[in-house]
Computed example of a mutant assay.
Amino acid sequence: MPSLPRWAWIAILLGLLAATVLILLAMGREPICKCGSIKLWHGEVISAENSQHITDWYTPSHIAHGLIFYAALHLVARRLGLLPRAAIATVVEAGWEIVENTDAVIQRYREATIALDYFGDSVLNSGFDIVAMWLGFALAARLPVWGSVALLLAMEVGVALVIRDNLTLNVLMLLWPLDAVKEWQAAR
């Protein structure tokens, strides 16, 4: 990748975020919660406002994405430098936010998980999911490996204990739904 100044890479990251927001809006996604308010935190998982505000119980999953993307890109693209790797991670995260909010994936969530009333993320939530990934990526760049692993495990276990869901279970249930997991999750 070309050697660009730091400000240019930051502009690229912000441009990727802006492009994602514009694509989601063009897809017809709701800009903010239909409730008309914007909350810093919404903690009720089984509600029409889940994934509609700035942060929620799924924000740690996006922080985990950043930790994981940093580790993977450190292994395969270390020579690119931190900000070019952050741009690659942002493209992946933005791609997921777009795919996650397609009718096909929303329907898959409804069929395979306990998210029966899930109707996708607001654009606000998707944008801040990307910011959460940046936070995870930045933390991984500064923490020792054991610190990143400990943080990842703490978030996964903590969120699972509180809401019976997390990144691991989310991926499992989307790819290979298990009735036992679905029953455990439904017993909230």
Rank of each mutant, 00 (worst) to 15 (best):
S3Y: 12
L4H: 10
R6S: 13
A8S: 14
W9M: 05
I10L: 15
A11Y: 09
A11C: 11
L14V: 09
G15K: 10
L17D: 06
V21M: 04
I23Q: 03
E30P: 07
I32N: 03
K34T: 15
K34G: 15
I38H: 09
L40R: 13
G43F: 09
E49V: 05
N50T: 14
N50V: 13
N50D: 12
H53C: 12
H53V: 03
T59D: 09
H62L: 10
H62N: 07
Y70L: 11
Y70H: 11
A71N: 01
L73G: 00
H74Q: 14
R79F: 09
R79W: 11
L80Y: 10
V91F: 10
V99H: 01
E100H: 10
T102I: 13
D103H: 05
V105D: 06
Q107P: 02
R110A: 15
T113N: 05
S122W: 11
N125P: 08
G127S: 08
F128I: 12
F128E: 05
I130Q: 10
I130P: 03
V131I: 15
A140I: 02
A141Y: 02
R142M: 05
L143P: 12
P144W: 15
P144N: 14
P144G: 02
W146G: 01
G147Y: 10
E156S: 12
A160S: 10
L161Q: 12
D165W: 00
N166W: 02
L167G: 03
L169H: 02
N170L: 04
N170I: 07
L174G: 05
D179N: 08
E183M: 04
R188V: 08
